[in-house]
Computed example of a mutant assay.
Amino acid sequence: MTADAADAAGREPDGAEEAARFHTLLTSFEGRPAASAGRGKDPVNEPMIRHWCEAMGDANPAYKGADAIAPPTMLQAWTMGGLSGHTDRSSAYDELFSLLDGAGFTSVVATDCEQEYLRPLRPGDAITFDAVIESVSPRKTTKLGTGHFVTTRTDVHADGDLAGTHRFRILKYTPAAPPTARAGKPAQPKARRPRPVVNRDNRAFWEGVGDHRLLIQRCTACATLRFPWLPGCNACASPDWDTVEACGEATVFSYVVMHHPPFPAFDPPYAVALVELAEGVRMVTNITGVPYDKVRIGMPVRLEFLRMDDDLVLPVFRGSEG
């Protein structure tokens, strides 16, 4: 029986019927433009490419010189509106968000993105783009809460030619209520930290961590150091490598303070930092030894190994307020 049939039968539709009706309303936005004939605020340019490569630690020679191309993963960067936003965004996206907000799905988190590259972008290319609301999922329940996944597809053009496609997916959700302790029952044990994904490309790194050694990959062909670990050199593409052990000295290159959303095994607020090792590579890590609001760019930190539980040791960096 449909929701309309339930109304005709003289009874209120149940939760599932109401959710289906609301999802039908949401899917009416599929295929509607989120932005039409958008224009990148700047052409593809060398300074932005340099900033990106410095932030990512990417020294690939293809991104420098007279024949430079932009890193493919910068595809979305050329379409972003910055603090002032874009004036060419359509009303459909705002209308969709208003519906979701009105139904109580007021929180938002980015979940994933997919990119397809059709031709390289080069300095001087003028960027235009069109975005469409590609799909809105039925109601889903996640650890964060219950809501709908919204996927937007952006087609990026360079001097009129399709250069790539960027799909960006978010979850608009109602946060899950925090668990409450039941009277007379013992508190639940604290959740374990998530396990790292260990594979053939990074197994030696985690074995080193288990031995309280922070190992950095070194290309044996060109001696370039790299982190995180990769199956091949991002400077010369050689698959051959060995390792050097980090001395343990580093400085905070950048950081964020996580307040929300809360995750099991983490107690917000806490600082997540990108530290630059003395050897020149950078890694994402936690900062210990100082309150989260005392972490600063340029702060010297020192490697330590923190045992999280019986079978997990993590490399972290300790700072000092002195």
Rank of each mutant, 00 (worst) to 15 (best):
T2D: 07
A3M: 10
A3I: 10
A8S: 03
A9F: 08
G10E: 01
D14L: 07
D14S: 04
A19F: 11
T24Q: 09
G31A: 15
S36M: 14
G40W: 01
K41I: 08
I49Y: 00
C53T: 03
A55H: 08
M56F: 12
A62L: 15
G65K: 11
A70F: 02
A70E: 04
A70K: 05
L75H: 07
T79G: 12
G81P: 07
L83M: 14
L83W: 13
G85S: 09
T87F: 14
S91L: 15
D94A: 15
E95A: 12
F97E: 03
S98H: 12
L99G: 09
G102L: 02
F105Y: 14
F105P: 14
S107C: 13
S107N: 12
S107A: 14
T111A: 05
G124P: 04
A126V: 10
I127H: 03
I133C: 02
E134C: 09
E134V: 08
V136C: 02
K143T: 06
F149D: 00
V150R: 00
T151R: 11
H157A: 14
H157V: 08
A158C: 10
A158N: 05
A163G: 06
T165A: 08
R167H: 10
R167Q: 06
F168P: 05
F168H: 12
R169G: 00
P175H: 07
A176G: 09
P179E: 10
P179D: 09
T180W: 04
R182Q: 03
P186M: 07
V197R: 04
V197W: 06
V198L: 02
N199R: 04
R200K: 02
F205E: 11
F205W: 15
F205T: 04
L214P: 15
L214G: 04
L225G: 02
L225R: 04
R226E: 13
F227Y: 08
L230G: 08
P231L: 02
N234G: 06
N234V: 08
N234K: 05
D240C: 09
P261E: 04
P261F: 06
A265P: 02
D267L: 04
P269K: 00
Y270H: 13
G280K: 01
V284Q: 11
T285C: 12
N286V: 04
Y292A: 15
V295P: 09
G298F: 09
M308P: 00
L314H: 13
F317P: 12
R318D: 07
G319M: 10
S320R: 10
